[in-house]
Design a binder for these strands. Structure first.
Lengths: 211, 211
DNA sequence: GTCAAATTTAAACAAATGATTAAAAATATT
DNA sequence: AATATTTTTAATCATTTGTTTAAATTTGAC
């Protein structure tokens, strides 16, 4: 099929580990499965990465850093509107998830298993602080007398609408007898609609806030 | 503290198993942990339930059937409006999740691990079919020239906004340094807002549908 | 009270699993 | 070519884990 160039042992392990960690999670992946999939001797995993856990940390960082870098650029740009940022974020996010749909389930489960990986490996909080995106929200909230701390609902709603379908994919596939083809169509519909829905959500704050 | 009445061995096992399955998932829970937490001899687990897997199926059914029964009653009632049904569903769902916040992560992971449990144990599809809720959506979709098959987006959006925060709780707690207290406040805010946001989403179909 | 059935216990089994070791093989250095 | 270094291999360790077994204990029927 392909692979005319032989990967280094290290890369063969990482490639196999990433696929298996994403598919079955950390506990569900056995070091022997990784060795088998990578076509290497079991002991080489520990030789190159010391432990299964250390290998996981490397996979997490390598899997998410590209996406996070992209998102950071989008939310920091002072030239684009809040609305446009949402559109770009949804697009970037869905592009990544369309090729690696297991990412949300994987990362949510691993963070739950060991919350430290969030602080140590990725610095989401730091990336968010002082971004144009946050500033623009504060401006909108202030103009419309909405509590600015509702920002967390904004963020969670955006993540929910975008990422949740991927977490729920196995359940959806079963209930609605969806094939991968159908799921792709479904996601591409959401690519267009999520920014519209999100707009509607934002606007609904204006008319319904009281107290 | 409590428990003046001694539970039966069977119930002690189920109680311990439920707590551990919800907290650590099926693979993360060891039969010896269950036995220890239940204060029973390890062999009794197999004596009463045959296997860890059979025990899981029982826990899943017992954990979800009450909620599903409630939701089924709500969506079947022809007297309530679509809007009112959403409000009641969100309320019922959040009430259950507030006392058992691990349910979404648990059920999504177990369905992913073994999709059969959905068909065998719970019959979501069957419960949904022919309900007043579906009929009311079709009516609305028809009146506003929206493709009726967008119902799946409706359902997923509702699930996303309601359930996703619980799946993402460990991540949220870390990023926003939230305590359980803060999370409860956060959820109670959503109890009011989700129906409003959902309304806004529904209405946004009217103005943005084309093609 | 006796006996059969149900329940509980301690011990063990067999397989799986993350990691290590020591020797062999391949590669690089001089 | 000789030697040192790096990489790879097969074998083994020490735990962990789901389940089973056989004996002991308790409970219920008569």
């Amino acid at each position: 099929m392909s692979s005319p160039i032989e990967l280094s042992t290290e890369d063969k392990i990482k490639q196999a580990a990433k696929e298996l960690f994403l598919k079955h999670g950390f506990v569900g992946t056995k070091t022997r499965d990784i060795a088998l999939a990578a076509g290497i001797n079991l002991a080489l995993l520990n030789y190159y990465f010391r432990s299964k856990e250390k290998l996981l940390h490397i996979i997490i960082i390598e899997t998410l850093s590209a996406l996070f870098d992209t998102l950071e650029i989008i939310i920091k740009d002072p030239e684009t509107s809040f609305r446009k940022k949402v559109e770009l974020m949804v697009d970037a996010y869905l592009n990544t998830l369309e090729s690696q749909p297991e990412i949300p389930t994987f990362i949510l489960n691993e963070v739950r298993r060991d919350p430290k990986i969030l602080v140590e490996s990725l610095k989401i909080k730091h990336r968010l602080e002082g971004s144009s995106f946050v500033f623009q929200w504060f401006e909108f909230a202030n103009d419309n007398k909405i509590p600015p701390q509702y920002f967390i609902h904004i963020l969670v709603n955006l993540m929910s609408l975008t990422a949740f379908p991927f977490v729920a994919k196995p359940m959806m596939s079963e209930i609605f007898t969806m094939q991968n083809e159908d799921f792709k169509i479904f996601i591409d519909q959401r690519r267009k609609w999520i920014p519209i829905w999100f707009d509607a959500i934002i606007q609904s704050f204006k008319h319904n806030y009281s107290e």
